[in-house]
């Protein structure tokens, strides 16, 4: 079976056919989003927040994504947690290629998403230069709440069959930005 391309589960109009496939995709998306097997590719300090998210207080197990598989062949969700150096880029892509289809990637934190403050000879400026990414979670590091939000965003995308890269939006803008916006509107 190929990759899902239908982006919605919209009700078909009169005279249209193929509703069974659409329903099947919805069922498949529902099943997939609640049984994510994650491969943690943890390289840096963001790992602490990843552990906190997996711990009892935030408990990522509630979303069915709690079981880490330490073989990429058994996993379908790749968490890239932390800075990826140029030296690590080939292993990262090899691990991605070994994962089972359909595979999803979350860029955890600023370094994995865009290189962070490492604007130099040694760091990959965002893992989307190496592998496709489904969800970017900003933060240095992101709080566990943001991580869970990012996971829920990914689940929503899986349900909808949406493979476009998405950035987890900020819940609210930082105070300085709010202030500036207020000054500009005044």
């Amino acid at each position: 079976m190929g990759e899902m391309t239908n982006r919605t589960t919209a009700v078909l109009g009169e005279g249209q056919t193929g509703f069974a496939t659409t329903k099947f995709d919805a069922l498949l998306g529902w099943a997939r989003k609640y049984s994510l097997f994650q491969f943690p590719f943890v390289t840096a300090c963001c790992g602490m927040e990843h552990m906190a998210t997996a711990g009892s207080r935030y408990d990522i197990e509630r979303f069915g994504a709690g079981a880490p598989r330490f073989s990429p062949r058994q996993s379908d969700l790749l968490w890239v947690v932390g800075t990826i150096t140029q030296k690590q880029a080939p292993p990262l892509r090899r691990i991605y290629e070994q994962m089972t289809d359909p595979k999803y990637v979350i860029a955890f934190g600023t370094c994995a998403s865009c290189g962070g403050f490492y604007d130099n000879y040694t760091t990959v400026p965002g893992i989307d230069k190496i592998i496709p990414v489904d969800v970017f979670i900003p933060g240095c590091p992101p709080r566990p709440e943001a991580v869970l939000d990012g996971l829920m965003l990914l689940m929503e995308k899986i349900q909808n069959g949406d493979r476009e890269p998405a950035v987890l939006p900020a819940k609210e803008l930082p105070p300085l930005v709010q202030l500036r916006a207020k000054q500009q509107s005044a």
Binding site: Q86, K87, A89, P90, R93, A107, T110, S113, C114, N120, Y121, V124, P125, G126, D128, K129, I130, I131, P132, F136, P138, G139, C140, E164, P165, V167, A170, L173, P174, L176, V177
Partner: peptide
Amino acid sequence: TQPLIPYREVAPSKLAPFGADEGQ
């Protein structure tokens, strides 16, 4: 930089707009 593997082509509109607004 001297990447070991060539970068993927990524459309600018799909890039993460990271910066001051991400809260750090």
